[in-house]
């Protein structure tokens, strides 16, 4: 069983009278422990694909099975549960809560999962140590650098031990040094067995992935696995 099975996926946006076919007939399987880079020009439908993969949105047509379970027709609360259990999001603009400390931000997925406070604290602390932020746990996002904020976001994505990490241009807002640090972190995670799907512009980043999927005008035009 593939971790992700997408069949004949379509996504059409309707804004007023205008229709945009963001995805047309996408088929995509992702297996456990893959590191998939999705590349393509701006507006080609990468973010749309990520929203569908992350169950933030539902396709206009087609079938999507995550860990063997079809997500079609599930209600909002059930989808929230799936995101909480299976998906760890990393965004280009970090999306941390500005008024909460790094630790509290990382605890959020555990809070939504209903874990008790001491367990939340333990797990969030451990994961922050793993991303080298032991000394920044009580800082607010505003007191952190871009690279540090993105590491907090990665810790938050990992804390609930997700089936898959979904990252949308995670280095897009970082300088090249911080960006390399983040790429290194993803590499380590992959080496440790984490499944990762990452959207990127950057072919250099794409080269470290185990597989590169190229997308253009809402269609997959190339799908290449790196020779191991």
């Amino acid at each position: 069983m593939m971790m992700i099975e997408m069949r004949a996926i379509r996504k059409t946006y309707r804004t007023g009278r205008v229709e945009v076919e963001a995805l047309r007939d996408v088929n995509l399987d992702v297996d456990r422990n893959e590191f998939v880079a999705i590349v393509g020009p701006s507006g080609s439908g990468k973010s749309t694909l990520m929203n569908l993969l992350g169950c933030l949105d539902t396709p206009t047509a087609g079938a999507y099975r995550l860990s063997g379970e079809s997500v079609a027709g599930l209600d909002r609360n059930r989808l929230a549960e799936i995101r909480n259990r299976h998906i760890g999001f990393v965004f280009q603009n970090f999306n941390l809560l500005p008024y909460a400390s790094a630790l509290e931000n990382v605890e959020l997925p555990l809070l939504f999962a209903g874990l008790p406070a001491n367990e939340r604290n333990e797990r969030a602390t451990a994961i922050l140590e793993k991303v080298d932020l032991a000394d920044r746990m009580h800082h607010k996002p505003g007191e952190l650098s871009g690279g540090q904020m993105q590491r907090v976001a990665i810790a938050r994505a990992l804390v609930n031990r997700p089936t898959m990490v979904l990252a949308d241009e995670p280095t897009g807002n970082l300088d090249s040094v911080s960006g390399r640090g983040i790429v290194g972190l993803f590499q380590e995670l992959h080496a440790a067995g984490q499944t990762i799907v990452m959207i990127t512009h950057d072919m250099a980043i794409a080269r470290i992935a185990s597989r590169v999927v190229q997308i253009r005008d809402g269609e997959i035009v190339e799908d290449k696995s790196a020779a191991a």
Binding site: L56, R83, N84, R85, L111, F112
Partner: peptide, 16 residues
């Protein structure tokens, strides 16, 4: 709105 979206992405249910 964005913060609400973030919470939803992290798995917050309607009640939460």
């Amino acid at each position: 709105t964005r913060e609400i979206g973030v919470k939803m992405a992290l798995g917050a249910k309607a009640r939460q």
